[in-house]
Design a protein around this nucleic acid. Structure first.
Lengths: 212, 212
DNA sequence: GAAATGTGACGGATCGGTACGTCACTTGTT
DNA sequence: AACAAGTGACGTACCGATCCGTCACATTTC
């Protein structure tokens, strides 16, 4: 609508110069995340984006296709953030693992947090054929592999058990957020992960104490 | 339709004598759990139940009301099961905690498992006003309180941290099931909880190792 | 003038929800 | 005993609204 940008320049204005497709994409991503896939209709998306429906269907084959595109972007963004966090954590494997956990803990504390965009949709779309599901499964599988890799660096006895254990706690923090908010069980995310890591590091052989 | 029951008796047949309301209720509970709230319409429910829509609206004020009723029943059932499991586990606090975890692990392994009926809906219905949400919040709050109570019996240093930590792992097992199935990280549910319990039991004061 | 976008209308399907008629059975009255 | 009125459960048919998706055509933008 209103153009904001360099008034005395012939180059394109930097603001409000987004293509209809990208406006739709950004708006959809926000609405899908905040309210869920099924709760948001295409009419609401185009209305909120300030564009029209044909523009949506010129850029995306269908609503499901738009959903999949949004999930792909969330996955890419998440992967990128995680890698940056790991890189910034230095070389110590324990620090790297703890940095990942701390990153998720920080995310959960943000005011606009509404759970994991992947896990949420996985609950909402159980149908195996949905184009969004493979994006989710790929993303989570990658994440799991990454965690196992980090756990291996730690040279613990059972890296898979540690990685999956940490994943359980992290996903649990996402899930309990929906009911208790960030001050519920999620507040123990870091402490619980630390405890798990330390236990695995101290365990030479698998503790027979825990086996009946 | 076909009455099955005592052929030479004037008393009412014992089978196929369910009221329309209860057929709707049972069908709705199953469909809602398997496919999600928003994915299931009232038409499908009454069709599957072999009844008609007015029968639904004579028994329930609205679809949301039916949803809340289904959730209430799931909550009641869950509470009952947990109490039975705890009772059957004897008096040792550690055994009681582990029995609860084992119960959830067993549930996750069942072929008809599709996540926690409460947590699933919590993701799907973020709107605060929905009549189903307070059922969910109450159920989860009760569960949390119960876990804290069990942790207190253990006389560990920080029962809330242990209880919430276990809840994180349990909810994480529910959540990861949606993506990885029962052979994913969920398979480490029991071992991870055992590790957590043992750590808390061995810790006299809170381990300074885990604090930066 | 070519590409991107908007306009307005429309399609069939499905959504949650309801007005109204039907039927079996019980109750009250004579 | 007979019949009318009432009761409760149920179904038929329909409502307006919204869903996702499409169309031909006008307008803007570069």
């Amino acid at each position: 609508m209103i153009k904001i940008g360099p008034a005395f320049s012939d180059c394109e204005p930097t603001v409000e110069r987004k293509t209809a497709a990208s406006k739709i994409f950004d708006t959809a991503r926000d609405l899908f995340y905040r309210r869920g896939i099924r709760a948001v209709g295409v009419d609401e998306i185009v209305c909120e984006a300030g564009v029209t429906k044909p523009s949506l269907y010129r850029a995306f084959k269908s609503k499901d296709d738009l959903v999949a595109a949004c999930l792909r972007e969330s996955a890419r963004e998440g992967r990128e953030m995680i890698e940056a966090v790991i890189d910034a954590a230095g070389c110590d494997p324990r620090d790297r693992l703890r940095a990942v956990v701390a990153y998720f803990a920080e995310k959960i504390g943000r005011p606009d947090f509404r759970g994991c965009p992947m896990s949420n949709v996985a609950v909402e779309l159980p149908e195996p054929g949905h184009p969004g599901r493979e994006v989710i499964e790929q993303c989570k599988t990658d994440m799991r592999g990454r965690m196992v890799g980090l756990a291996r660096e730690l040279r613990v006895d059972d890296p898979e058990a540690l990685a999956d254990g940490l994943l359980l706690v992290i996903e649990g923090a996402f899930a309990t957020y929906h009911i208790f908010g960030s001050q519920g069980p999620s507040q123990f995310l870091r402490r619980t992960c630390d405890s798990l890591i330390d236990t695995h590091m101290k365990t030479e052989a698998w503790s027979p104490l825990s086996l009946r």
